[in-house]
Amino acid sequence: MTEYKLVVVGAGGVGKSALTIQLIQNHFVDEYDPTIEDSYRKQVVIDGETCLLDILDTAGQEEYSAMRDQYMRTGEGFLCVFAINNTKSFEDIHHYREQIKRVKDSEDVPMVLVGNKCDLPSRTVDTKQAQDLARSYGIPFIETSAKTRQGVDDAFYTLVREIRKHKEKMSKDGKKKKKKSKTKCVIM
């Protein structure tokens, strides 16, 4: 069974824990209790493949930012979460993405942009803004509501699919490099 290491990042209060708990335990946590770091595991079937999701729910508070490099190193894919009623959390996505790329030393890291709290009427981040940002990053965008469960499975499952595509691409690139290195030079 394939294991996928997913990391949920975003500013404090955007609903990272609520999304994760909704996926794992099928219930909505409405009281806000700032996370330092929590880890969850769940076995699911995605596109006919049974897999184990190892999900790291991270601290959004700035005082825990020193811990970010460590979990970013171990993560295979990242859910970059903002709240649709919090423009600052949307603007912060850029910083999370840049930090992930720096730590992973790669421009090509599996990510999904997630606009959470889409059940709320007080939207300050337009869907088109988020779609445009995701398009500019070359990553999928999904709106979710941890409260109603809308888009929750889709967000995590899409990230797994992005990781699969990335692994497939990397193995193809690896095979191309191996083929090239088999060419021999004969000096007579």
Rank of each mutant, 00 (worst) to 15 (best):
Val29Asn: 11
Phe90Ala: 03
Gln150His: 15
Asn26Lys: 09
Asp132Ala: 12
Ile21Cys: 14
Gln150Cys: 05
Leu19Trp: 03
His166Cys: 07
Met111Val: 04
Asp33His: 07
Ala11Thr: 02
Gly48Lys: 08
Asp126Arg: 05
Tyr96Ser: 01
Ser65Glu: 14
Gly115Lys: 02
Gly10Cys: 02
Ala59Tyr: 05
Thr127Asp: 10
Asp57Asn: 06
Asp119Gly: 05
Ile100Ser: 00
Lys42Thr: 07
Ala146Cys: 09
Gln61Lys: 08
Lys88Cys: 10
Gly60Phe: 02
Ile24His: 14
Ala83Cys: 02
Arg164Thr: 03
Arg135Gln: 12
Gln70Val: 02
Tyr137Ile: 10
Thr87Leu: 07
Ser106Met: 09
Gln99Asp: 01
Lys176Gly: 13
Gln99Arg: 06
Cys51Ser: 07
Phe90Lys: 05
Lys42Phe: 07
Arg135Ala: 15
His94Gln: 11
Glu63Cys: 04
Glu49Trp: 02
Asn116Arg: 00
Asp54Val: 03
Glu3Pro: 14
Lys167Met: 02
Thr2Ala: 10
Met111Asp: 00
Arg123Cys: 14
His166Phe: 13
Leu56His: 14
Asp54Cys: 04
Glu168Met: 05
Lys88Leu: 06
Ser106His: 06
Cys80Gln: 01
Arg68Ile: 02
Leu52Ile: 12
Ala146Tyr: 02
Lys167Trp: 02
Arg164Leu: 06
Glu63Arg: 05
Tyr32Met: 08
Ser181Met: 10
Asp30Ile: 08
Asp173Pro: 09
Lys172Ser: 10
Ala83Gly: 15
Gln131Ser: 09
Asp38Val: 06
Thr35Met: 05
Lys177Gly: 13
Asp38His: 10
Asn116Phe: 00
Glu3Met: 04
His95Lys: 15
Val112Cys: 01
Tyr32Lys: 09
Arg161Cys: 04
Cys118Met: 07
Gln25Tyr: 02
Glu3Gly: 13
Thr127Trp: 13
Ile100Lys: 00
Lys104Phe: 05
Thr20Asn: 12
Asp153Tyr: 14
Val152Ala: 07
Met188Lys: 14
Ala11Gly: 05
Val160Ala: 05
Ser122Asn: 09
Met170Ala: 02
Asp126Tyr: 08
Phe78Pro: 00
Cys185Ala: 15
Ile21Leu: 14
Glu168Tyr: 05
Gly13Leu: 09
Phe90Leu: 14
Glu76Gln: 10
Tyr157His: 14
Val160Trp: 03
Tyr96Met: 15
Lys172Gln: 14
Asp119Asn: 03
Leu56Tyr: 13
Met188Ile: 04
Asp105Met: 03
Asp126Val: 08
Val7Ala: 06
Val152Met: 12
Gln99Val: 12
Arg149Lys: 14
Gln131Leu: 10
Gln131Pro: 02
Glu62Gln: 07
Leu53Ile: 12
Val8Lys: 00
Gln25Phe: 03
Thr127Cys: 13
Asp69Met: 02
Thr158Gln: 12
Met111Lys: 03
Ala18Gln: 06
Lys101Asp: 02
Gly10Pro: 00
Ile163Cys: 04
Thr20Met: 10
Tyr71Lys: 10
Glu49Leu: 01
Thr158Ala: 07
Ile142Gln: 14
Val112Gln: 00
Ile84Trp: 12
Phe82Asn: 01
Ile139Gly: 02
Leu133Ala: 10
Val44Tyr: 05
Gly138Arg: 01
Thr183Val: 03
Val29Lys: 11
Tyr40Glu: 11
Ile139Glu: 01
Phe82Lys: 00
Leu23Tyr: 10
Asp54Gln: 12
Lys104Gln: 10
Gln70Gly: 06
Asn86Asp: 15
Asp54Pro: 06
Thr2His: 10
Ile36Phe: 05
Asp54Lys: 15
Leu133Pro: 02
Gln22Lys: 09
Glu49Ser: 05
Glu98Gln: 06
Met67Ser: 14
Ile93Asp: 02
Ile36Glu: 13
Leu23Ala: 14
Lys169Ser: 06
Val8Ile: 09
Arg149Met: 15
Val81Cys: 09
Gln150Met: 13
Lys165Tyr: 02
Lys180Gln: 14
Lys101Ala: 05
Asp105Gly: 15
Arg97Glu: 08
Asp30Leu: 04
Lys172Thr: 06
Met72Gly: 10
Tyr71His: 09
Val186Met: 05
Pro110Tyr: 01
Lys5Cys: 01
Arg135Trp: 03
Ile100Glu: 00
Val125Trp: 10
Leu19Phe: 07
Leu120Asp: 06
Cys51His: 06
Gly60Glu: 12
Asp92Gln: 13
Lys178Pro: 09
Gly12Met: 04
Lys165Asn: 10
Asp38Thr: 05
Asp173Ser: 06
Thr74Phe: 09
Ile55Arg: 04
Cys118Pro: 02
Arg41Met: 09
Phe156Val: 15
Val152Tyr: 08
Arg149Thr: 05
Ile24Gln: 11
Val45Gly: 09
Val160Gly: 02
Glu49Asn: 05
Asp173Trp: 02
Gly77Leu: 08
Lys179Asn: 15
Val7Leu: 03
Val29Gly: 14
Thr124Ser: 12
Ser65Asp: 12
Thr148Arg: 05
Leu6Cys: 04
Tyr137Ser: 04
Asp92Cys: 04
Thr124Leu: 09
Leu53Pro: 03
Asp54Ile: 04
Cys80Asn: 01
Asn116Lys: 00
His166Lys: 07
Gly77Met: 07
Lys182Met: 13
Arg161Trp: 01
Arg149Pro: 14
Phe78Glu: 00
Glu31His: 10
Asn86Arg: 02
Tyr137Thr: 05
Glu162Ile: 03
Lys178Ser: 14
Lys177Asn: 15
Gly75Lys: 02
Ala18Asp: 14
Glu107Ile: 14
Gly60Ser: 08
Glu91Trp: 09
His95Phe: 01
Thr74Ile: 10
Val29Pro: 08
Glu31Ile: 10
Gly151Val: 05
Glu31Lys: 10
Arg161Gly: 10
Lys182Cys: 14
Gln25Asn: 05
Ile139Gln: 08
Lys172His: 14
Gly48Asn: 07
Pro34Leu: 08
Ile139Val: 11
Pro110His: 03
Glu107Phe: 13
Ser89His: 08
Gly77Asp: 00
Tyr96Cys: 09
Thr2Trp: 03
Tyr96Ile: 15
Leu113Arg: 00
Glu76Ala: 13
Lys88Ser: 07
Gln99Trp: 15
Thr144Val: 07
Leu159His: 00
Gln61Met: 10
Lys117Cys: 15
Gly60Val: 06
Thr58Pro: 10
Arg41Leu: 06
Leu113Asp: 00
Arg123Val: 12
Val112Gly: 00
Met170Thr: 15
Val8His: 00
Gly60Leu: 03
Val9Pro: 00
Lys175Asp: 15
Lys117Tyr: 15
Tyr137Cys: 12
Ala83Ser: 11
Gln43Ile: 06
Glu91Ser: 02
Ile163Met: 07
Arg123Ile: 09
Thr74Cys: 11
Tyr137Asn: 05
Ile187His: 15
Ser122Glu: 14
Ala134Arg: 01
Ile100Gly: 01
Ser89Thr: 02
Thr35Phe: 06
Lys42Cys: 06
Asp126Phe: 09
Arg102Gly: 09
Lys101Gln: 12
Phe156Pro: 00
Leu133Gln: 07
Ala59Asp: 13
Lys180Cys: 09
Ile163Val: 14
Gln43Cys: 08
Gln22Ser: 11
Thr35Pro: 06
Leu159Ile: 11
Glu168Gly: 05
Gln131Glu: 13
Arg97Cys: 15
Arg41Phe: 05
Lys169Tyr: 02
Phe28Glu: 11
Arg97Met: 15
Glu3Ala: 11
Thr2Arg: 10
Arg68Ala: 12
Thr87Glu: 15
Asp47Leu: 01
His27Trp: 05
Val81Asp: 00
Arg102Ile: 04
Val109Ser: 01
Val44Lys: 12
Lys165Phe: 03
Ala11Asn: 04
Ile55Leu: 06
Leu56Met: 10
Val109Arg: 01
Lys175Ser: 15
Gln43Ser: 07
Ala18Arg: 06
Asn116His: 15
Met67Cys: 09
Leu53Asp: 02
Gly77Trp: 00
Gln61Tyr: 04
Tyr40Ile: 07
Lys101His: 03
Ile142Phe: 10
Ala146Phe: 09
Arg68Trp: 11
Thr148Cys: 09
Lys101Glu: 04
